[in-house]
Design a protein around this nucleic acid. Structure first.
Length: 274
DNA sequence: TTAAATTCCTGTAAGC
DNA sequence: TGCTTACAGGAATTTA
């Protein structure tokens, strides 16, 4: 699943390849992957536009265009953005192909189609409710333990569900939420608003460390995630709890507990996390 | 405002 | 072997 570290890996690889390039053609092979504007307008308006900056916001990729609009890519669960030559064979479920003025292509494929492409100014996309208001960037130096404490205060939902809530914190998904809770030694089913300042401070550090380790390892390839070139990340080899329900905790040896929180598989260690 | 449930979608794996 | 079924989950939407 592409979460913050996976999207960050793609954006930083994509930057030197696409920054300054102009989109010359758009081929929508599955038009409804475009959620804004109408696919016809998307395919008509994007060609001729030059990419002037690439950013990541939460799990969203933002390609800023010369005209003031932004091309937004969200990978959903199984989305892949691949950098290809025109003669390379298409992989299945390739929904959109963007040709660039250096002769290369960006291809978007997504079997489950939970991902999306958007085009417009940020104000327009927010007004159209296509871009949600996102919480702070966890790796922003200005994001402090006090900020996190304030955002969790008064909330009775399980901690894990708030870590997954993109309006509370942007970019954390199921993998890094479980990993951060383990690293912080906090049970993911604890009511979020009941955590002491000390525990929130630990959680704040744990979230950042988990994400930074993921970036350093070029992401977790537990399912379909690959980078721009189709290569897998290495972070899945470092995961302590995600996907390991019933298997022994690497730290204490006790079998890890698998529960369901908000419909999400959640794994933690009853002995190490309290 | 918050929280929980539902929906979308298909490849994969488990079970019979 | 071949079929059916359950499961994976990000985020929008709906309901309470």
């Amino acid at each position: 699943m592409p979460e913050l570290p996976e999207v960050e890996t793609i954006v930083s690889d994509l930057r030197p390849l696409v920054d300054g390039r102009t989109v010359t053609a758009v081929d929508l092979r599955f038009p409804s992957i475009v959620r804004h504007p109408e696919p016809e307008a998307f395919a008509r308006d994007l060609p001729g536009q030059r990419v002037v900056a690439l950013e990541r916001r939460g799990k969203y990729m933002l390609l800023r265009l010369g005209g003031g609009a932004v091309l937004v890519v969200h990978l959903g669960m199984t989305g892949q953005l691949l950098h290809k030559q025109p003669e390379d064979p298409y992989r299945p479920h390739t929904h959109a192909v963007l040709s660039l003025d250096n002769g290369t292509q960006l291809r978007y494929s997504d079997p489950r189609r939970f991902g999306r492409l958007l085009l417009g100014t940020e104000a327009e996309l927010i007004a159209a409710r296509r871009l949600p208001r996102l919480g702070p960037e966890p790796l922003d130096p200005e994001f402090t333990p006090a900020d996190l404490h304030r955002r969790l205060a008064g909330r009775r939902a399980p901690l894990k569900l708030l870590l997954l809530d993109q309006s509370v914190l942007a970019g954390v998904g199921n993998i890094y939420a479980d990993e951060a809770c383990f690293r912080a030694r906090i049970r993911p089913d604890r009511p979020a608003g009941r955590l002491s300042r000390e525990r929130v401070r630990r959680l704040h550090a744990a979230v950042r460390e988990s994400l930074l380790q993921g970036i350093a390892n070029r992401g977790s390839s537990v399912d379909d995630y690959v980078d721009l070139y189709g290569a897998r990340g290495r972070q899945q080899e470092e995961l302590q709890v995600y996907g390991r329900g019933g298997r022994p905790c690497f730290k204490c040896g006790a079998p890890l507990t698998l529960v369901r929180l908000g419909g999400r598989a959640t794994v933690f260690c009853r002995r190490c996390q309290r």
